[in-house]
Amino acid sequence: MEKILVLAHADDSGASLTRHSLETVTAGQQLAAKLGAELAIGIVGGEAATLAKTLPSTGAKLLAISGEAFKQARYATDAAACEALSRAAAATIVLAPHSARFARVMAGVAHRLGGLIDTHIGTIGGDAAPQASRWFYRQRIEAILARSARPWFLLVDAGSYAAFAGEAGGAAVEAITVETPAVRTTVSGFRAPKQDEQTIRPDAKLLFVAGAGWTKKQPDGQTHVEEAGKLILGFLHGSGASLGSSKSLVDQGSEGNSVLPFLTHLNQVGQTGATPRHPKGLATCCHGEEPHVVGWRFIGQRRAISLDPNCGWTRGKADVVYIADAFQVVAKLNELLAAKK
């Protein structure tokens, strides 16, 4: 019989589990129910009792690694912690969030346990034997895969399951001890890219994608980069949207051209960028497969504003395409959003 372990970690505050961890708890519950398997949850990264407070209602066995060294997200310590939890649970299937923290270490952990790993998992289906779905070739081909070898580690993508929400209650958490491994790395904190303000908001309802058209010559024969910057920032302020960009637009920065000062490669969507998840997406001044097909892969409702009535990439991918000047439309949008506030 399978034994399932869900690995979960604390958020930056150290006081709660990440939402993504709680989504993976749901994935674990569903899989355990389907397979009639035992479920355990292993916690890393903070005060176990506090972190586990909503988990007793899962009915799962709760395990945790505590200690100062394990609070920071770092390969050597996180790998040791996840290895110890996986061994303690004697798990045959280990589910973990595909977060930056766990993606950094989980393949190493699988290797230490003589196991195998698959990552970026969307959903886990199948009957007696689990089958996992994921994308290949940067979100262009989808596949369902399986493995017969155990232990099998699966990193589940954010937004694939609803987050587990349980009543807070006293949690009985078994403390797992592990020797602190030798570390040569000290984590000193976080740094936001050099930009005027934070434009990436993973929790936003809307993704606003800006393309290179914003910095190109406009019908009057001139570029209007400064105005473009003001309009885009104005829209982000008014709507609370997260900002994505095409590669062509962010790349201009490193080639010495004038470019929107608040954009970095972290904003880039597409094959060599991110494929963020938001319920809605609005693409502006973009052309091509990257921003529309790949960058939009996990976007629910999609609209685009483009001057190009023949852009084949929006057809079949967007719900609505407005053939119009994005400068004019976004200026009007900003007026309306300001009036609404």
Binding site: R74, V187, S188, F190, A192, P193, Q198, R201, P202
Partner: peptide, 8 residues
């Protein structure tokens, strides 16, 4: 996550 870098 969140358009930041971890510094180590």
């Amino acid at each position: 996550e969140g358009g930041k870098h971890q510094v180590s």
